[in-house]
Measured scan of single mutants.
Amino acid sequence: LGLPKMEVFQEYYGLPPPPGAIGPFLRLNPGDIVELTKAEAEQNWWEGRNTSTNEIGWFPCNRVKPY
């Protein structure tokens, strides 16, 4: 089972920042694999864990694709 995984195809370094105070941003590099921890199809921002860095944070969902 486990959490859904997504592959990063466009880098994200915190700009634009996540809206409001939902949480810290998650740095993404192309090729990184992100395990989704909070993701809803109608939301533009998802939370996940970058398996390369083990960091957890928020990122724009348009930077990832199904793994």
Rank of each mutant, 00 (worst) to 15 (best):
P16W: 00
P60T: 00
G23N: 07
G57Y: 03
P17G: 06
T37I: 14
Y12M: 01
L1F: 12
G2R: 14
E11P: 08
P16Q: 02
Y12N: 02
L28P: 02
R27P: 09
P19W: 02
A39Q: 15
K5M: 15
F59L: 03
F59N: 01
P4N: 15
M6P: 02
Q10W: 07
A41V: 14
G2P: 05
E47V: 07
I33M: 11
K5N: 14
N62C: 08
E7F: 13
A39H: 11
P18K: 02
L15A: 14
T37K: 11
F9K: 14
G31T: 04
M6T: 07
G31D: 05
L28Y: 00
E7L: 07
K38R: 14
K5Q: 14
K65Q: 08
G2M: 15
P17R: 04
G23D: 07
P16T: 02
P19F: 04
W45I: 02
G57E: 00
S52Q: 15
F9I: 15
R49E: 08
I22Q: 11
E40M: 09
L26Y: 01
S52P: 01
T53I: 05
C61T: 11
T37H: 14
Y12I: 02
P19R: 04
K38H: 10
N44G: 14
W58Y: 13
P30I: 15
E35D: 14
F25Y: 11
K38T: 13
I33F: 12
P30M: 13
N62K: 13
I22M: 15
V8M: 03
G31H: 05
R49C: 10
G2E: 11
N62M: 09
N50Q: 04
W58H: 03
T37E: 05
L26E: 03
L15R: 11
N50K: 07
T37L: 15
L36E: 02
L1V: 13
Q43K: 09
N44I: 10
N29H: 14
V64M: 05
T37A: 06
D32N: 08
G31S: 05
E47T: 04
T51E: 13
Y67E: 12
C61Y: 10
V8G: 04
M6W: 07
Y12C: 03
C61R: 12
P66I: 06
P30A: 12
G31Q: 09
P60S: 02
Q43P: 06
N54S: 12
N44L: 12
P66A: 10
E7K: 13
G14C: 00
E55T: 09
E42H: 15
I33Y: 05
P66R: 10
L36K: 03
V8F: 00
P60C: 01
W45L: 02
P60W: 01
P19L: 04
W58K: 03
Q10H: 05
N62A: 11
P18L: 02
V8D: 00
L3M: 10
L15P: 00
G2Q: 10
D32Q: 06
G57L: 00
P16H: 01
N62D: 11
G2K: 11
G20V: 10
L28H: 00
C61L: 06
T51W: 06
V64Y: 01
E55S: 09
E11W: 03
G14W: 03
F9A: 07
F9D: 12
F59E: 04
P19S: 06
R27F: 05
P4S: 15
P24D: 09
L15V: 14
T51K: 09
C61G: 10
Y12D: 01
E42W: 10
G2D: 15
I22L: 14
V8I: 02
Y13L: 09
E40L: 08
P60M: 03
P18R: 00
N50A: 02
G48E: 03
R63M: 11
K65G: 11
F59C: 01
P30L: 14
E47K: 08
Q10K: 09
S52F: 10
A39E: 14
V64S: 02
V34I: 13
K65V: 08
W46V: 11
Q10I: 10
L28G: 02
